[in-house]
């Protein structure tokens, strides 16, 4: 370290007014630095997140049309609410989103945990598996959507081709309303199980080995060790992976936009897609804002609930 401790000592030795003035100056520069470091982020957040969020409030009670040279706002507080009341698509969207989040996160957590324990227990291929698992997380979700769109293709996709070898199919992976949501969930599981794995694997590797050894000496079998020791010890890591995944799954947009755009019917319409459709396809900024607020309110409720859950565990 390039700091010379001796050179600073004489300054401390001086007494009287010099010290007080020096201390004052120091305090000022301290405060200046404190503000200078935090303010850029605060200003950016206020301008580009707080203000737009407040804007949502105003938009949600307005009908916004576009005339030459800019937006025209009309105050219509009840129109959007009435639309929300009658919006059966929004209900279907919530249902789909809920199914998507619950099913995909549950399967990802289970698979990811099993994989983490298995890799750790085998003790081989750790580096290789980790390399492979990073890939889906880093690849653009749009590319993943387009890859799977090709694989699911009704006429020449790999899945229908393989089925055809056995004289089966073809299956409308993305066109059958009963199957489309499942197909989309499969892509999400492929995409995000690796993320759960990485987090839980770090957790498993950090477990105290002595405890597990002691349990084994006491005659516990593997299944008992997993259930009675590993699972409880991994609680915090599992909770974090669960919360992260739930949030990300709730926000899903890119892949579904490419795979089905919400169809057929409303089979795969999720919250983000509906917002996109209302804001940009129907061009209804006011109603889009109201839907946004409803979604944000639901997320705040979820976050508060999740915090209570984490606090309860701790």
């Amino acid at each position: 370290m390039g700091v010379n401790r001796q050179s600073a000592t004489p300054a401390l030795g001086q007494g009287g007014n010099g010290v007080r003035a020096e201390a004052k100056r120091k305090k000022q520069s301290d405060r200046l630095f404190r503000y200078a470091t935090l303010m850029p982020a605060v200003i950016a957040l206020v301008i580009f997140t707080v203000y737009p969020m407040l804007n949502l409030l105003q938009m949600s009670v307005s009908t916004i049309t576009f005339a030459h040279g800019g937006a025209v706002w009309q105050f219509t507080p009840l129109a959007n609410l009435a639309k929300l009341r009658d919006d059966s698509v929004f209900l279907a969207t919530l249902r789909n989103t809920l199914v998507f989040v619950v099913v995909s996160v549950a399967i990802e957590m289970t698979l990811g945990f099993a994989l983490a324990v298995a890799v750790s227990a085998l003790g081989r291929f750790k580096g290789l598996i980790r390399s492979v698992m990073i890939l889906p997380i880093l690849v653009p979700p749009v590319a993943i959507g387009s890859m799977w769109k090709l694989m699911y293709n009704y006429n020449f996709g790999i899945f229908n081709q393989m089925l055809a070898w056995f004289g089966l199919g073809p299956v409308g992976w993305l066109s059958d309303p009963n199957l489309a949501l499942v197909s989309v969930i499969i892509v999400d599981i492929w995409h995000w199980t690796p993320f759960v794995f990485l987090i839980l694997f770090a957790g498993v590797e950090g477990l105290p080995r002595e405890v597990i050894e002691a349990a084994r000496v006491d005659g516990a079998n593997n299944w008992q060790i997993v259930r009675k020791i590993i699972l409880p010890l991994m609680g915090p890591a599992i909770a974090v992976a669960f919360i992260f995944r739930s949030i990300l799954a709730f926000k899903v947009f890119d892949q579904i936009f490419l795979l089905t755009s919400g169809g057929p019917g409303t089979a795969t319409e999720v919250v983000s897609l509906l917002l996109y459709r209302v804001f940009f396809a129907q061009n209804d900024m006011g109603y889009g804002a109201l839907l946004s607020l409803v979604v944000i309110a639901m997320i705040v409720a979820f976050l508060l609930g999740a915090r209570r859950m984490v606090a309860g565990r701790a």
């Binding site: 698509v89 059958d176 309303p177 169809g263 057929p264 409303t266 089979a267 129907q282 209804d284």
Partner: peptide, 19 residues
Amino acid sequence: GAAVEDVMGLRLNQALIGQ
């Protein structure tokens, strides 16, 4: 027009796929 088209586009599709 756009809103009517959106409504018909969804409901007709639901009839076609049996929803």
